[in-house]
Design a protein around this nucleic acid. Structure first.
Lengths: 264, 264
DNA sequence: CGACCGTTTGAGTGGGGTCAAGGCTCGTGG
DNA sequence: CCACGAGCCTTGACCCCACTCAAACGGTCG
């Protein structure tokens, strides 16, 4: 089985077998890390990129008085940190939520791989842009949605992303988050997360028990959440309805040519 | 006077006169655009990057029922859009708030400039990372701060960014935003923005009249906001206190060498 | 002068926060 | 095998921050 990273990058660029081999070598030295462990610290200068291969982590910011905001979830195939060092660029910490298998890729190593392999350059670039798109969506989610909509939107987001890397079952996924985590993600209190979840359960929109999230009617949840998945950058072509799960990438979109493998 | 763009990029990389000339050529064909006009539409495929040279714009998302969230402000020297086309990457619209002078840079043109000029590649890359850092900070701002803190934080953010491109006066700046804009930025209602502003005024933390924001005691406002400016990526060196305004970039940080002009 | 847009103020309401106690589950150790 | 404790989830009661609705005020520009 190829890494989730390769699967994701394959959506962004056409990877040759050689490209895939290079990517495989980048994440060769992956280790398992226990839960509740920090990969990145806000105050430390980042000198490498971490690739998450298994498990969940989260990016977060924290105030002195204890308030915490989770700004992103990192799932298999996701990257965090940056190959370029500059003060302030990494203004967040990254902590594991579950046991995580992650590979530390030194900045220069990643950069030279990008330099020698345009598809990798393109994929890293697009992955960063896609991450930004998600961050914008989260800002909006917290900014203008109600508590119920926020939770619903977050669940749509999570399930869609997991589905893209093949980590969902037929109607849901494993959700290794506490209600406190959820609250710190969408900006509401733990108690109110609980009440909101019950609300969603009673409406038949979700089931959630023992870290297993079920979504019997995704379309219904999506409507409550006002969720539009374009920002996840998973659709190979613009427009049209989102049909089955096994969509194939559109060659016109991912094909590379010239500098950075970019098709304009 | 060099463009604000060149000034900002000069903080990210050491630009040769040739690099600066190339940047100047990229934004040569700039036009004035009236206020309340869209540069980018969410549903349209982006085929170019816009460079804001004068005036203010904002990135925003909107729901069908009218709710709107401003996800970023774009000021002189800022870029929006992307040179790489991929569905979903541009999941926001950009509208002008004031008359704006902006240059449309076709994707391939920017990419080839990056390709031929490592410092430009590095600067574009770092600018994107810095934009992401701001976006994360905004997510956190809306997520875990109170209304008063959010507004205070936003003002610290804006003034710091404007100062970096030389657009502040001695203790404040022009703020071309309505209270409705502010509300849509930090996720509170217009009425409550008004009351929060009065709160800040009565505390002596700000003056705000006729689009002119004054901050008599920045340190005090910063403390109320729990504002830490590292995420703005304006400090040439890590650590140490933020002293005067006229800090010079640290050569060790911005110097370029090798691929993408990166110093590891 | 009126129309318009943005700001301000008041009153009433409700979404969501806080505090506190109790319940469930599971891992651990006796 | 059971007892126990630690997290996490759940529930209730109370309250307040912030929202809504509505109206009045104030500049600015035809």
């Amino acid at each position: 089985m190829p890494h989730h990273l390769i699967r994701k990058f394959g959506r962004y660029a056409r990877l040759s077998p050689d490209d895939e081999a290079v990517l495989g070598r980048l994440v060769r030295d992956a280790d398992w890390i226990g839960p509740d462990h920090d990969l990145l610290r806000e105050d430390a200068a980042a000198k490498a990129v971490w690739a998450i291969l298994e498990g969940w982590a989260c990016a977060y910011k924290q105030l002195e008085d204890g308030r915490r905001q989770i700004t992103a979830y990192l799932m298999p195939g996701d990257l965090c940190g940056t190959p370029i060092v500059f003060p302030g660029i990494v203004n967040y910490s990254v902590g594991t939520l579950t046991p995580v298998r992650a590979a530390r890729i030194p900045g220069p190593i990643l950069l030279s791989a990008m330099d020698g392999h345009p598809p990798i350059m393109r994929a890293v670039w697009l992955d960063m842009l896609a991450t930004s798109a998600i961050q914008r969506e989260w800002t909006a989610n917290i900014g203008f949605r109600t508590a119920k909509e926020r939770i619903a939107h977050l669940f749509c987001d999570i399930v869609s992303r997991l589905r893209a890397v093949g980590l969902t079952d037929h109607d849901g996924c494993i959700l290794p988050l506490t209600q406190e985590d959820l609250g710190e993600t969408v900006g509401i209190s733990t108690v109110h997360v609980n009440r909101t979840l019950q609300d969603l359960r009673q409406a038949g929109l979700i089931t959630l028990r023992r870290q297993r999230l079920g979504i019997p009617d995704f379309a219904a949840l999506r409507q409550v959440a006002r969720f539009d998945d374009v920002y996840l950058c998973q659709r190979p072509s613009v427009g049209g309805e989102h049909g089955g799960i096994d969509e194939k990438p559109d060659a016109d979109v991912i094909a590379g040519s010239g500098m950075m493998g970019i098709t304009m």
